[in-house]
C-alpha cells in the first residue's frame, strides 16, 4: 500500500524542501521506495538540495503534458537504492498544471513507489492546490516563530478543507538554548496552539548549510545530529510511530556540566 504525503507550510523558507529531501533519503534508507516530487514549478530547488541538478532532462510538466514517459522524467539517485526525483519545470509557472493532472500523476507514481513525497511551494494559491491534490496526508513544517505558526494554522485549515486527514507537525530550526533561556517557544507551546500531532523536531544547525552547499542531504551523514533527527522522523513516518524523538537537550558544554555537578548551575531542562 503506498502513500502520497505533501510537505507544506504556508510561509516560505521554513524548510519544506530540506524536509522533503531528507525524509526521502531517510525512508529510502529504511528500504522503502520513494519518489520525491518538486511541485514548486518555476522555482525548482529540490534537485539542488539532492545534488541531482546535472541529470535533469525532463521535468514534471513534460511528464504531465505527455512529452515524455514518467520513467524518463524520474531521476534515480545513484547513492541510494529506491530514491527517485521528479523535478519541477524551471521555465513554466504554476498554472501550467491543474489539480486533476497532479492527481493523475500521483496515482501513477503510487503504482511504482511506496512513498510519494510532494514538496509544496509557499503560499496558498494554485501551487498549493496542485501539491495537495493527489495527497493522502500532509506534513506541516513550521519554525518556532509567530509568523510561521500563524501561517501553519491557516494551512492546517486548508488541509482539512481539502478533506485530508489531520496533518502531522515538524518543528524546524529548533534552538534548545533559546528555549532554555525562555526566548523561543518550546514544543508544548507550539502544540498547544496548533493542536495537531507532533511528528518531529529538527534542530537549527549549520550542517544543513554545508549539506546544501554540497548537494548531499544531511540524512546521509551518520554523524550529524540533524541527520539523526531526520532519520528518526523517517522511521516514525515509515511504520514505527513509537520511535522516540531526538533528545534536544541543551548541549551547554563542559563548564556548565561541571558547575552542575557542583550544584552551581540549574539542572538541565530537557527540550521535550
Amino acid at each position: 500500500m503506498s502513500e502520497c504525503i505533501v510537505i507544506t507550510s504556508g510561509k516560505g523558507g521554513v524548510g519544506k524542501t530540506t524536509t522533503t529531501a531528507n525524509l526521502g533519503v531517510a525512508l529510502a534508507q529504511q528500504g522503502h521506495t520513494v519518489a520525491v516530487v518538486d511541485a514548486d514549478i518555476g522555482l525548482r530547488n529540490l534537485d539542488v538540495i539532492l545534488g541531482l541538478e546535472n541529470r535533469i532532462v525532463y521535468d514534471l510538466v513534460h511528464v504531465i503534458e505527455g512529452e515524455c514517459r514518467l520513467k524518463q522524467g524520474l531521476i534515480k539517485d545513484k547513492r541510494l537504492d529506491g530514491l527517485s526525483l521528479l523535478p519541477a519545470a524551471q521555465t513554466r509557472d504554476k498554472n501550467a498544471v491543474t489539480p486533476d493532472q497532479m492527481r493523475k500523476l500521483v496515482a501513477e507514481l503510487k503504482e511504482h513507489f511506496d512513498y510519494v513525497l510532494v514538496d509544496c511551494p509557499a503560499g496558498i494559491e494554485q501551487g498549493f492546490k496542485n501539491a495537495v491534490a493527489g495527497a493522502d496526508k500532509a506534513i506541516i513544517v513550521t519554525t518556532p516563530e509567530v509568523s510561521a505558526i500563524r501561517d501553519a494554522d491557516r494551512i492546517i485549515g486548508m488541509v482539512e478543507a481539502a478533506e485530508l486527514p489531520e496533518p502531522q507537525l515538524i518543528i524546524n530550526r529548533f534552538r534548545a538554548k533559546m528555549v532554555q533561556s525562555g526566548d523561543m517557544m518550546n514544543k508544548e507551546d507550539i502544540l498547544e496552539i496548533l493542536a495537531i500531532p507532533l511528528l518531529g523536531v529538527v534542530p537549527d544547525h549549520e550542517d544543513i548549510i554545508v549539506s546544501a552547499n554540497r548537494g548531499v542531504p544531511v540524512a546521509f551523514d551518520d554523524e550529524s545530529l540533524v541527520g539523526e533527527a531526520y532519520r528518526r522522523i523517517g522511521r516514525r513516518l515509515g511504520g514505527e510511530p513509537d520511535v522516540p524523538l531526538l533528545d534536544l537537550t541543551v548541549d551547554d558544554g563542559l563548564w556548565t556540566t561541571i558547575k552542575r555537578w557542583m550544584g552551581l548551575a540549574p539542572a538541565r531542562e530537557v527540550a521535550r
Partner: peptide, 24 residues
Amino acid sequence: SKEEAKQRLKFLLIHDQVDLTPAQ
C-alpha cells in the same frame, strides 16, 4: 563546501539562463 556551492551555482545559473540542463 562553500567552494563547491559556488562552482555548482555558476554552472547552474548558466544552464538556467539558456534553459538547457547539463544532461540535455
